[in-house]
Simulated assay, not measured.
Amino acid sequence: MTRRRLSAPRIAPALALALAVPMTLGLSACGINSVPTAEENVKARWADVQAQYQRRADLVPNLVATVRGAAASEERILTNVTEARANATRISVSPEQLSDPAAMKSFSEAQARLSAAILPLQRLQEAYPQLQSQGNFTTLMAQLEGTENRITVAVRDYNEAVRDYNTRIRTFPEMIGAKLVHGAKPLQPFQATTPNADQAPKVDFESK
């Protein structure tokens, strides 16, 4: 009697497929794909934050020039804004520095100083009504306010992406892939705080 042999080539593809599917699912569950995807999302959201701060920085010189034309005597305020803008544009945070608390703090503080310097500009129209009659000033202030709102949204989205990423690399099973393959480190949320933001800025129009 001749015995029939099972054909190895016929079994091999089926066996390979049966092993590949759970392995693929297992790797995905361990964060092989999801962790870098979450990291790239954080980087994209951070680019949005920087873009909005850059947009604000681009508006400031035009606003300063407009105010100088109508209220040249307020040179102290204009100088403070110009210096704060220069400092803010010098400090940047690359995607590789998002896990560095010191770098994030420096960026945040520089932007906060510019925010504080801009506040007196918004009060100048009270002492110089002629500013209100200048369409350029009104337009620039509206754009600046709109940019501040965009910054708030961009920072919120960035912090949400950081929260998602940091949760993934610290929870099972994605923490396995995060540590073994990606060497992932927690990323820093961004605190866009302005010193004494809860207090109305004091602008002394008498002393120069």
Rank of each mutant, 00 (worst) to 15 (best):
G146L: 15
R168K: 14
S73E: 15
K208G: 06
V35P: 07
A51L: 08
A88H: 00
A20Y: 09
N196Y: 11
E39P: 00
D204E: 09
H182D: 09
P36H: 03
T37L: 07
N41M: 07
A20W: 11
D100Q: 07
R68Q: 11
L180E: 08
A112Y: 02
R68Y: 06
L98E: 04
V21I: 12
Q111M: 12
G183W: 13
T89F: 07
D100F: 00
Q122M: 11
Y53K: 03
Q54K: 07
Q199E: 10
N62H: 13
P13Q: 13
S94V: 08
S34C: 03
I118Q: 04
K185C: 08
A103I: 02
N196S: 14
I11Y: 14
T82Q: 01
C30P: 08
G31N: 09
D157H: 04
A192W: 00
P129T: 06
R170Q: 15
T24S: 04
S94L: 13
A65N: 13
E96D: 15
R150V: 00
R156D: 15
G69I: 09
Y128H: 01
Y53P: 02
N62P: 09
P101T: 03
E145K: 15
L27K: 12
L25E: 04
A14I: 11
Y165P: 06
T138V: 14
E206T: 08
L114C: 00
N196V: 05
P36M: 01
I176H: 03
Q97V: 06
V21F: 15
V67I: 14
P195T: 13
V67R: 08
A44P: 05
P189F: 04
L144A: 05
V162N: 09
P186S: 13
A70I: 12
E145P: 09
L27D: 05
A38N: 03
L25Y: 06
A84M: 14
R68C: 12
L6C: 09
F172I: 13
A38E: 00
L180N: 12
D58L: 07
N41W: 12
N159W: 11
T79Q: 14
V93C: 05
D58K: 08
S7L: 04
L121W: 04
Q188N: 11
T167E: 06
T139H: 15
S207T: 13
P129M: 01
F137W: 15
N166C: 05
S73F: 10
E148A: 00
N149S: 12
L27W: 08
I11K: 13
T194Q: 07
T66Q: 14
Q97H: 03
R45A: 10
A192Q: 06
V42Y: 09
S28R: 04
P120K: 02
A47G: 05
A86C: 02
T82S: 10
F205E: 03
C30N: 10
G26M: 06
I176R: 01
E96R: 14
A29L: 14
A44L: 11
L19A: 07
A71M: 05
G69Q: 04
I91A: 02
T37N: 08
F137P: 07
V60E: 07
